[in-house]
Design a protein around this nucleic acid. Sequence first.
DNA 1: TGGTCCTTTCAGAAACATCTGAAAGAATTA
DNA 2: TAATTCTTTCAGATGTTTCTGAAAGGACCA
Lengths: 181, 181
Amino acid sequence: MDSTLLDKSRSLFIRRWGEMGASWGVSRTMAEIHALLFISNQPLCTDDLMEVLQISRGNASMNLRQLVTWGLIERVHRRGDRKEYFVAESDVWRMFETITRERRRREIEPIIETIGKCREMLKEELKGVKDERRKDIKEFQRRLDDMRDFFTVVNSLFNLVVKVGESRVADVIKVLAKFER
Amino acid sequence: MDSTLLDKSRSLFIRRWGEMGASWGVSRTMAEIHALLFISNQPLCTDDLMEVLQISRGNASMNLRQLVTWGLIERVHRRGDRKEYFVAESDVWRMFETITRERRRREIEPIIETIGKCREMLKEELKGVKDERRKDIKEFQRRLDDMRDFFTVVNSLFNLVVKVGESRVADVIKVLAKFER
DNA sequence: TGGTCCTTTCAGAAACATCTGAAAGAATTA
DNA sequence: TAATTCTTTCAGATGTTTCTGAAAGGACCA
C-alpha cells in the first residue's frame, strides 16, 4: 500500500536508482531489481520482484540472470523450498569493484587497444609521406597519446579505490584534501 | 576511399569511440561526431560530417547542438564564409572535466539527494515503530550510509583529478599508493 | 526587395531495446 | 510414472530512441 515512510523511501530509492542506471547504459528494470535487492534485508524470490516492480516473469528472469553474470547478485537456496532466492552484494565497495572490473574489461580495454592499433598505423604511415600530411598525422598522434595517458591514469585511480576500500575512506579524503588548491 | 593508413586509423578510432559512447549512454552518432572533430586538425562544417559519417543534415544539426550544450565542441566562424564550422576541445583533461561536471550534476547529485531524503524519512520512521521492523530500518539506513560515503569519496576523487590535472596526477597516485593494502 | 546559402525544426519512418506471456524445460515429490 | 512447482526461453508486441528529409527560418548580399 506504500503508506509507511519505510515503504516510501524504498520506492523513492528504487525509482532513482533505476533512472540513474538508465542514463549509464543499464536498463531501468535491471537497475530497479538491483536496487530492490540491495536495500532488502533478506533474500527475495522472483515473485517478490514481480509484485513490487510490476514486471513479468520473463523479464524478471532475464534481468536476474544478467545481474548474476555481472556478479552483482547471487542465487540463494532455502532448505525445503523449491523457489530460488536472490541477494545483492551489500558491500558498496565490492559492488564498485565488480562494476568497474566489468566495465573496464568491456569498454575501456577495447578503446585502449584501438588507440594502440591506431598509433601503430600512424607510425607506419609517417615513414613515407609528404610534408603537408605529416602535420596532420603528428597532430592525430599527439591526441591519441594524450588520450592513452589519460586512460592510464584513470585506470590507476580505479585500482586505488578498489584496493583502499571502505575502511580507510576518512584517511583518503584527508590526504586528497591536501592536494586541493 | 579509405585507403591510406591515416584514413583507416581515423575510421577505426571513430567507430570505437562511437561504440564506447553507446554503452555509456551517449548516442552512437553523437560520439562519432565528437570523435571525428576530436581527431581533426582543423574545424569541420556540417557537410563534412554528413559526408564522412553518412548521416542526414537534421541528425548532424541536432547532435552538434547537443555537443555544444555539453561544452565538448565549439562553433567557429570563418571570415568570408557563411558556413559554420566546429572544433572539439582538444585537451583530454578539460574534456574529462566537462563530462564529469555535467554527469555529476545530472546523475550523481540527484542520487545523493535521494539518499538524503531517504535517510530523513527513515530517521522519522524509526521514532515510533515496533522492534521487529526496527531491524529492517536500521539495515536500510546502514546501506544508505555506506552508499553516501562511497559517493562522497568518488566526488572528492573527481574533484582532485580536475583540480590537479594531468601534470600532478602522477604525484597524487604516488601518495595514494601508500594506502594500498 | 528578392535571391542565395546555410541552419534549424519537426512529423513521420526506421531502427532498436525492452517486455510479455505462453510453452517448453528442469527439478522434485508422491 | 505422473503431477506439481518453479525456471527459462523466445516469438511477437510494445515502447523508446534515433534518424531522415522536407519545409520553415534566418542571415547576408546585390
